[in-house]
Design a binder for these strands. Structure first.
Length: 445
DNA sequence: GTTGAGCGTT
């Protein structure tokens, strides 16, 4: 029969009574329902004064010597959550408060049970704060879950708390991180600290940066953002009117462009670059879909050809490869080293556990360094070719019109580098070029 | 009906 067991987060805390199963065992999920992130239990053995662990297999906790008795059981959390001394993890919020930007972003939930649904996600994560997005990604044909999903909190504090712990959802441990951050759970907690301390690591002062999805873009590069933004991850049911209506709350929308046939992205143009800039890097939820706003690449440039700005950033080996390629190409990598001779930029990126050196950031940093005279602009030999006149007349954006889904996906990890001095035919066709040289007055609209 | 590292139809 069900009995109620006294469980507390700490010996000093007031216990909560938690119901056992019919057979007298206690499910970890039941514990985690009251103590999100819990991974086990222990109690103080009155005869020895020592703490004793509770046996657990497959998420089921067994009473010591067959009976729960009247002990107050203490919840055990993963070691990574242990709070001790003056470590930053003692109070992650205190450290993250020094970040410029505390907006919520979409979070990826990894390791979901196949059976978990949007409702399960919402129910579970609502314990930590108001959930404004819960998605399980599925195979479109079979509807089968891919085992991951996305959530978004309304409150940044809930987001930080959520990311600082693991989650037992329907019997599996799941991790929550910033999408594409390449964080493991182990690096993630460190990450909070490192971001806070990153002034020492970054080649530009962190106070001059804004945080966009944990990506840092130097202030000087922000002016390269035009009045037009690129809206990624659109779904087919989002109309131009939907976009116009939605984004009008931020400023006057002067144009909306949705490529046809459907390409899962759109362009929204404001009458103010300031408004456009303020939206870059943000996720927005339109008709239940999370779209991502990023800079619209210039469709052509008088000097350097069309440019690509955003890609998904280096993932795993991708970012490594990107940097190596950068080193081969020399200019920017060497400049960065000159600026910060003590730090290997690749190590910085790795230690921060984030997409610091993704293409958009590199382009932005490169633009700043170029404007400071630290590195030369790309040479004529390194230019991507101009789009043809025919492509100009086609309107929209010449680069995207020339890409198939597959080829653009293949390019996505290294888009920037391909434009930066690559003579590779694919990139030439892609029309990628860097933003460096500050040609924002030409080609931007 | 299987699976278990990843990353949202640019």
């Amino acid at each position: 029969m069900t009995q109620y067991i006294q469980v507390a987060e700490d010996e000093r805390e007031e216990p909560i009574e938690i119901p056992s199963e019919e057979d007298g065992t206690l499910l970890l999920t039941t514990v985690a329902a009251q103590f999100p992130g819990a991974c086990g239990m222990k109690y103080r053995n009155p005869s020895t004064g020592n703490l004793r662990g509770i046996r657990m297999t497959d998420g089921t906790l067994y009473p010591p010597d067959g009976v729960w008795g009247h002990h107050v059981y203490i919840v055990v959390f993963p070691k990574e959550n242990k709070r001790k001394g003056d470590d930053v993890l003692d109070n992650p919020m205190a450290k993250t408060k020094c970040l410029d930007n505390q907006r919520c972003s979409d979070l990826i939930v990894l390791g979901l049970p196949w059976k978990s649904t949007e409702e399960d996600l919402k129910r579970y994560f609502s314990q930590l704060g108001e959930i404004v997005l819960a998605q399980v990604k599925r195979d479109p044909k079979s509807g089968q879950s891919k085992g991951f999903g996305f959530i978004r909190f309304n409150d940044y504090e809930a987001q930080v708390k959520c990311m600082s712990q693991r989650h037992m959802i329907d019997g599996r441990w799941c991790d929550v991180t910033i999408p594409n951050s390449n964080d493991t759970f182990e690096t993630k907690c460190q990450h909070i600290k490192l971001v806070a301390d990153s002034t020492k690591l970054l080649p530009f002062p962190v106070k001059q940066c804004v945080y966009l999805k944990e990506t840092i873009i130097p202030e000087g590069a922000q002016q390269l953002v035009s009045r037009k933004v690129f809206v990624a991850r659109c779904t087919e049911n989002i109309t131009a009117d939907d976009l116009r209506n939605y984004f009008s709350k931020y400023g006057e929308v002067v144009d909306v462009f949705i490529p046809k046939p459907f390409r899962a992205f759109a362009f929204v143009t404001f009458n103010s670059a300031e408004v456009a800039r303020s939206l870059v890097g943000e996720d927005h939820i339109i008709k239940g879909t999370s779209v991502f706003v990023t800079t619209a690449a210039p469709k052509n440039s008088d000097k350097y050809g069309g440019g690509g700005s955003y890609n998904k950033g280096g993932q795993g080996k991708g970012s490594q490869r990107g940097w190596n390629q950068q080193q081969q190409q020399g200019a920017f990598g060497n400049a960065l080293k000159q600026v910060h001779p003590s730090q290997d930029p690749n190590n910085i990126a790795n230690s921060l556990g984030m997409n610091f050196f993704n293409s958009a950031v590199l382009a932005a940093a490169q633009a700043v360094l170029t404007s400071q005279g630290a590195i030369p602009p790309p040479s004529q030999a390194q230019q991507a070719p101009q789009p043809t006149q025919q492509q100009h007349q086609a309107g929209g954006d010449a680069y995207n019109r020339n890409q198939t889904y597959d080829s653009s996906r293949q390019n996505s990890g290294t888009g920037f580098f391909q434009g930066w001095g690559s003579s590779d035919a694919n990139s030439a066709a892609g029309g990628y070029a860097s933003w460096a040289g500050g040609q924002q007055q030409g080609g931007w609209n």
